[in-house]
Every structure is written in structure tokens, then in C-alpha cells.
């Protein structure tokens, strides 16, 4: 046994997948009847895990546009026609798949990046600097974390809805809430912040930002302080330490926080479905919901299945690529856990 090779890996998923299970430590071997019994149980669990996955994958590769009349769990044909149709014309509206994808990426990447960039200095201050009001301000950051996203959506809806641009007459523009049209003139609505991707982005940032501050503080707390102390002895001030020592050290964890946020925002449904009314602003998650169950009387199920696979793929890829860190991040950094 090479000690370097068996260095303990802290991450549960990695251990779960790679743990040494050959059983040299004990001489006991598994009796055959017990082995068979366990195999039956394991296979039954395997079947239950694979059941919905195979169901949806099989359906997505089917060319049948009718709803399934009997259960099929193994693809009889590999047809990409459903994928092609979803990519060509995902909804009944004249919106291309690329636009939907662009909206989803804009929201998930944009909100993730902005929250991270704004949060990182505050997280550093909470983690390393001493100042009055530290405890009070930390509790203040924690308060919004207790509120589920749905709970904050009402006031955000009302406040963002008050920011509108109106054409009162051909010459006069009114920007609410600063100016309004004259009494009795309704005006034509040009822009409503609530009904725009920008407004939804603001609403999502409202909950993402305190979470990012809290999460990053948790991460920064785990970074050893020795390097910073050494830098301070060498005469570096707080700013230099932050930019030249802490940021490079924390970069991988910043990336993980960003991708955790991406996974969450990619599935954002509460605010988007509540705020957005124009099909051109729809995201992939909203489209998938529109194709589901009773709301999709006209949508063939093979297209729904193809869409489900497409929406799931980016998250699955990110998750598998980052599995080394994600579970650890959920249980150590996150306070909601």
C-alpha cells in the first residue's frame, strides 16, 4: 500500500466512488447465499433509480408524437427528431431555442457572477477584520437567508413594477417613479422593470447576495491565516493581503461558489414565472414547465422528454466535474444546511 496513493480524501462523493472495498482488513468472506441476497436487493434499488431516467431517455429518443400507451424503458429506436424539433421551435411562440438558452445563461451566469463579485470583499471583512458592529451586521446578513425566495418575491414584485418608462405623447417620455404622465393620460408602456430579465436578475440577486456573503465567509474561515500573517510581517497592508494573498488562495472556492449558484439559478422558477410575461424573456426552466403534464395538452411527450434531458445536462455536467468539492461545500460552507 502506497501511503501517497491512499491519502485520505475529505470529500464524501469521491470516497463514495473510490473507497477501497477489496476487504483485506478482515479475513471474513461473504457467504454465497448472502452475496446473492444482497445482489438482489442492490439490483432492485438499481432498477428503481434507473426507472425514471430510462423512461425519459427512451421517450426522448422516440419518434412517436402520440402519448405513450404502454411502458417502454429501453429505447427501441434512436431518433433525434424530438431533439431537433425542440431545438428548432421549442414553444408555440416564435422564440428560438437560442434565445431561451441565452436568457437562462444570462440570468444564471450574470446573477452568480455579480453576487460573487459584490460579496467577496464583505465576506473577507467578516472573516478577517475586527470592527464594531461586526455581530450586528452579520445577523443582518443572516436575516434574509431565513426567508424562502417566495417570501421575498411580493415586495420585489411591487417595487420593481413601479419602475416604468411610458410614452405619454409623441414628445413626452415619463420615467416612473420620478416623473409621471399628466393627469388623465394613460400613456403607452415602453418598459417595465418587473417584466424584464434585468428586473428578474435584480430580484434573484436580492436573495443570492446575502447567501454568497455568508457562504464565502464560511469558506474564507477555513483558509489558514499563516500566509496572511507572514505577509503582514513583511509589511503588506490589508488591501495588498486581500488582493495578492487571499483572492488567489480562495480562487478555486470562489469558482465552486459560482457554480453552486449557477446550479441553483439555472433552475430558477419562482421569480421568473411570477415576473415575466413576454415569451421572448422565457427561460429554459419556464419552457420545460410549460411542456409538463396538464399544461401541455398539445406538446408531444417525446419533445418534453428531449427538453428535460437538455435542461438537465448542463447541471449534470457541472456537478460531475465538480463533485470533488460540491458535497463538502454544501455541508461546511452553507448555513442553510
Amino acid at each position: 500500500m502506497n501511503p501517497a496513493k491512499t491519502a485520505p480524501n475529505k470529500n464524501p462523493i469521491v470516497r463514495f466512488l473510490t473507497m477501497n472495498t477489496s476487504g483485506q482488513t478482515s479475513g471474513r468472506s461473504l457467504p454465497l447465499w448472502r452475496q446473492l441476497l444482497f445482489q438482489v436487493v442492490c439490483l432492485a434499488i438499481l432498477a428503481s433509480v434507473m426507472f425514471p431516467i430510462m423512461y425519459i431517455v427512451t421517450m426522448s429518443f422516440s419518434s412517436k408524437t402520440t402519448r405513450p400507451s404502454s411502458l417502454e424503458l429501453i429505447p427501441k429506436e434512436i431518433s433525434f427528431i424530438a431533439y431537433q424539433q425542440v431545438l428548432d421551435r421549442p414553444t408555440g411562440n416564435p422564440v428560438t431555442f437560442i434565445e431561451l438558452l441565452k436568457n437562462s445563461i444570462l440570468l444564471s451566469v450574470g446573477v452568480g457572477l455579480i453576487a460573487l463579485l459584490i460579496a467577496v470583499t464583505a465576506a473577507y471583512a467578516f472573516s478577517r477584520l475586527k470592527f464594531k458592529l461586526r455581530e450586528v451586521l452579520m445577523v443582518l446578513v443572516f436575516i434574509p437567508l431565513l426567508m424562502p425566495a417566495v417570501g421575498l418575491s411580493t415586495p420585489l414584485y411591487l417595487l420593481l413594477n413601479q419602475v416604468q418608462i411610458k410614452q405619454c405623447s409623441p414628445e413626452v417620455l415619463a420615467i416612473q417613479p420620478f416623473t409621471t404622465c399628466e393627469e388623465g393620460v394613460r400613456g403607452r408602456l415602453l418598459f417595465n422593470l418587473r417584466d424584464s430579465l434585468f428586473g428578474v436578475g435584480i430580484a434573484m440577486t436580492a436573495t443570492a447576495l446575502p447567501f454568497a456573503v455568508w457562504n464565502l465567509k464560511g469558506y474564507l474561515d477555513t483558509i489558514p491565516k499563516e500566509l496572511e500573517e507572514a505577509a503582514a510581517i513583511d509589511g503588506a497592508d490589508t488591501n495588498q493581503t486581500f488582493w495578492q494573498i487571499v483572492i488567489p488562495l480562495a480562487a478555486p472556492q470562489l469558482a465552486v461558489t459560482f457554480f453552486l449558484g449557477f446550479i441553483g439559478h439555472w433552475q430558477e422558477f419562482v421569480t421568473t414565472w411570477l415576473f415575466l410575461s413576454q415569451p421572448k424573456d422565457y427561460t429554459l426552466a419556464m419552457t420545460l414547465y410549460n411542456m409538463t403534464g396538464q399544461y401541455a395538452n398539445s406538446v408531444p411527450w417525446n419533445r418534453f422528454a428531449a427538453m428535460a434531458v437538455i435542461v438537465a445536462l448542463p447541471v449534470a455536467v457541472v456537478y460531475i466535474a465538480l463533485q470533488k468539492r460540491i458535497v463538502g461545500g454544501l455541508t461546511t460552507g452553507g448555513v442553510k444546511g
Binding site: L17, L30, L288
Partner: peptide
């Protein structure tokens, strides 16, 4: 100890964690 096909089981059992819950719900 000594269970056959352990790696395969582990790799498959982790799949529900990977699929986004929104898609799972639909």
C-alpha cells in the same frame, strides 16, 4: 466487504443527486 459490482452500484446510485430537482419534478 466482498460485494460484487460495488463500483457500478455506487456510480448509478448517485445519479439522482446529479439531475436538477426542477427537471426531476417535471
Amino acid at each position: 466487504e466482498g460485494l460484487w459490482m460495488k463500483r457500478i452500484y455506487r456510480a448509478v446510485y448517485i445519479l439522482p443527486v446529479v439531475v436538477p430537482p426542477l427537471v426531476v419534478a417535471t
